[in-house]
Amino acid sequence: MFEARMVRGFIIKRILEAIKDLVSEASWDCSTSGMSLQAMDTSHVSLVSVSLKADGFDKYRCDRNLTLGMNLASLAQIVKAAGNDDVITIKAPDDADKITLIFEPKSETETWEYEIKLMNLDSEYLGIPETDYSVKINLPSHKFQRICRDLSQIGDSVTISAAKDGVRFSTTGDLGSGNVKLNQTASADKPDEAVTIKIEEPIILSFALKYLNHFARATALSPQVSLSLSKDVPLVVEYVIHDDDDDEIGYIRYYLAPKIEE
């Protein structure tokens, strides 16, 4: 028996909104420690990895490890019907060929129940080694969203260059060019609005803005986002998910292979 109940059901809604257009089908791996998912987009250029700790749920029971393969677009469509204040419960028996989703509006005495068929997916998992990145940038997630959105009006790819004097995001296109320079913020009065930049070694790497704009759909999950970069390895864009007490209950990480000059 698997049962996971989340009072802040909007977290599940937001996770699905953040991944459904990038990966169409994926498997959730459920164990006693929590739920996780890893999937590549169809072009194999980017990868999304989601983890939700068992502690992050208000009730969590997993009697034995389960793999729940499903169409994420369908799941997202159904979960979209839940209200932002709804409690969401996911249930599956051990030999499940479907899962049950239960939505309970907080203030009302009604229960909405949906069943979703499961799929057998040939998932291709990639082993991602622990990496010491040369550059780690933490910035407000809305700022990252805006940088990606605004620069994609000009060009298709962004070049991120990080050196001692700050980080620059630049693009060029038929219209012209654009660039945004970010410097580390001085005070820690508003941690959500802080920009911190750690540089071991300067880097300059280019990425397709189309994918970064997909990643930025996770903005509502966290006020801050981190970008980890090293020469010749994929970029990692991470949104850490917190509970009401500000404890970490999971994350959504996106990996994107760089563009290489031919």
């Binding site: 250029v45 990639l126 082993g127 280019s206 292979a257 760089p258 563009k259």
Partner: peptide, 14 residues
């Protein structure tokens, strides 16, 4: 022009 590289160039299937 820049070439978009696949993730398989960096990470191996488990």
């Amino acid at each position: 022009t820049a070439e978009q590289i696949e993730l398989f160039a960096y990470y191996l299937p488990k």
